[in-house]
Design a protein around this nucleic acid. Structure first.
Lengths: 195, 195
DNA sequence: CACGCGAACTTGTCAATGACTAGATGCCGG
DNA sequence: CCGGCATCTAGTCATTGACAAGTTCGCGTG
């Protein structure tokens, strides 16, 4: 009774309800299993209601991606140094698997959406500013490469984690902690390995 | 004989024709755009013909993933050392984007398919044997982490490349060559940086 | 060479879905 | 009190995946 269902004609917060339901489906069954009509059913509205908020299926996924990039930017901004930013990267993927999947599958969303672009720009900025912490490599070309390397490491780890490819390698270990030691191993092998 | 279309009642090599068409669609429009009926149309057969070879949509994607892992294992096996195996990893992703995408999207295929499991086991073996080349880190735990690190680096780079996220960072550069220098930078920063 | 068995393919059908249109409802500002 | 307009409903259509039943034909067997 906490949430009298058939409130009135209007749902109240259908957009959020659809988004939340979509995230649930994507996280458990993957983006392919997403159906607008199913989401409408879950929200207790008619089959055409979602279209008003998201235009079409791609529109919904675009909204998911945009929200994902916004949350991603916040998560990255909170990290103090490069390594913790990598940890935040992995944590975000583990905590928001649905967002992460849609964000990095360009064929699912409209990459030219203004909201998405803005959020993505924020996330990119948070990522770039972290690379500045890297030990200076002398040449600017190496700096760029080192940035791509850091990004690749975090992104690869996160992706493999979400696809279940690290299940046996991790074996009940905390992924974040594993990535922390891994990053230490890779980026400062001679510095004593300390924090 | 090689091209007379309406040969007879039988297509001749429908399975391969459907697979090839599927790879084309996936590579250009993504897995979501895949339609069995469209593939049947391209091959000039009836809409139910593909089902005989692949059972259903998931079956087709499972076959794609299985073929992908087989090709992947071959590609990895040809590389002499760990770094070149990483380069082969990236090259495979760039050369077989459709295979790669389906292989690493568990929600698209049946992960318990025998053919897929066998091919994947081969690929995993090729990957593991490469990790043995790593500079001994002393503890076995570090060895495992180093293996995951190498895999993450290659996989992250490949994934970011395929999703277009390295477009500006690479800027017309050869991805394989970029990864080679990147790997040198990361895994042997003190060894002179040569190549 | 006749034959029939089974694989490869076709035709027909059904439920589900995405997308679109037109109409109903009720909140909110004037 | 009232009218505009965002929100939601109801109805419809083309497309798709999946399934069932029938057709064609390659091929091994006797």
């Amino acid at each position: 009774m906490s949430s009298e269902r058939e409130r009135t004609y209007h749902h109240g917060d259908l957009r959020r309800a659809i988004l939340t339901a979509a995230l649930d489906v994507i996280a458990t069954e993957g983006p392919a299993a997403l159906s607008l009509r199913d989401l409408a059913r879950r929200a207790g509205v008619s089959h055409a209601a979602p279209a008003h908020h998201f235009k079409d299926r791609t529109g919904l996924l675009t909204a998911v991606a945009a929200e994902g990039y916004a949350l991603f930017a916040d998560a990255l901004a909170g990290a103090p140094d490069l390594r913790e930013r990598g940890v935040a990267y992995v944590r975000f993927a583990a905590t928001h698997p649905a967002h992460f999947q849609v964000m990095f599958q360009p064929d699912l969303h409209r990459a030219d959406d203004p909201d998405l672009l803005a959020a993505r720009a924020r996330a990119t900025e948070a990522l770039r500013s972290g690379v500045a912490d890297l030990p200076p490599a002398g040449r600017g070309e190496d700096d760029r490469l080192a940035g791509v390397a850091a990004w690749s490491l975090a992104h690869g780890f996160a992706t493999l984690l979400l696809t279940g490819n690290l299940a046996d390698a991790m074996a009940g270990r905390d992924p974040e902690e594993a990535f922390r030691s891994l990053a230490a191993l890779v980026f400062a092998p001679e510095s004593g390995g300390g924090g």
